[in-house]
Design a protein around this nucleic acid. Sequence first.
DNA 1: CGGGCAAGACCGACCGGTCTCGCTCGTGGC
DNA 2: GCCACGAGCGAGACCGGTCGGTCTTGCCCG
Lengths: 220, 220
Amino acid sequence: MTQSEVAESQHPRERVLSAVYPLFAHRGVRDVGIDEIIRTAGVAKATFYRHFASKEALVLAFLQRRHEVFGINWLLGEVARRATTPEGRLLAIFDVFAEWFAREDYEACSFIRVMFELGASDPAGQASIGYLHEIRNQIVLLAKDAGLDDVDGFAWSWRILMAGSIVTAAEGDLGAASRARRLAAALIAQHRPATATQAFHCPASPGHHEGTGQFRRENR
Amino acid sequence: MTQSEVAESQHPRERVLSAVYPLFAHRGVRDVGIDEIIRTAGVAKATFYRHFASKEALVLAFLQRRHEVFGINWLLGEVARRATTPEGRLLAIFDVFAEWFAREDYEACSFIRVMFELGASDPAGQASIGYLHEIRNQIVLLAKDAGLDDVDGFAWSWRILMAGSIVTAAEGDLGAASRARRLAAALIAQHRPATATQAFHCPASPGHHEGTGQFRRENR
DNA sequence: CGGGCAAGACCGACCGGTCTCGCTCGTGGC
DNA sequence: GCCACGAGCGAGACCGGTCGGTCTTGCCCG
């Protein structure tokens, strides 16, 4: 193997995965057909199906790739470069988001998009939800590091801010990240134990249950 | 006309719209084909195309219908039934959301789903973003009623909470609405003018711009 | 020589969209 | 009051294109 050419002389499976990544990430899953995939990857159709049992298998592999290169672990690394304290690392998530949202080819979160595109009952939708839960679990660990109260409820609320800013950024809000950061700071204050908890006014909601870490909805 | 039968003896366009509504709302737009639509509506294909120029035109009509029967005006009505004060009406949004999320056939926000499914450059995606902006504009008016500061930034932040809870509810958080409500209360406190503004600690972010009402991203 | 490959023909199913049939029913001329 | 007409309709054949997926061919390289 000459190793020259471009970098295309890799394993066909790898060529397919790296070719399909931007297509799926930017345009979603259903809009990209097999023919376009193999054309972009420069791979024969038979070769594609030697390495992937079906398009669904490719989608699952894409989601895993997304999780590996642009998921929570990548985010935790970025966050660690920017802050040293546990609370600072939490808030730094939205500084990373600010750079992400500012990209002119901002493509939002593939897990959320696939969950909506294919539905929660589809295997790829289930996998997406699984990765989103993995993100939330890491938030739980960060919250524990920060010594916060009710880390599970905190992580769910944190996910609201992450998902909400991702969506409103796609809607067109250029300041979504900084807005979410302000809300995140308030959320941290709400979950700081004992000393100087919430000093702000929280109007009561009649018949308003607490809503702790409860979970699970049957797939539609 | 006997007027009996069922209630199906309406105008074909209306039959198509009411038949397609649950299909699009629950399964998205691309998953539902023309053949299934006309079969469900009990309408001939030629009749369908007499009333809709294309499937895209049907999607646009669906979005408009969604906006009319389940959009911001419906939400404002529900909210008015539950609260009298401006701040109470704002917070009541998440009480309505709590009931919405609890439905076993919860289908999330069609505007967000279509925006992600078709992309921001697609006409239907553009229309969806337009309806989302209309929602935000009504939040601005509610915020003005409540006498809050920076109503535009407030409305964007409020949309973060709405969109975020919608997404995390789809992920499986049964308490998304009450969590968002708590955050919303903190957001209102942040935007209450002068008297007793934020008493909580908001850690500084190095090089962190303010992020006011700026807006607009070019369609990808 | 043989396994993995690129190229691409081929498959049935379905896509969005057009067009041809009859049938029905409301309407206007008489 | 009657009837012929025509618009609108349901049913469905049909169109080219594309979908995901299979299979054949011939090449290249170990």
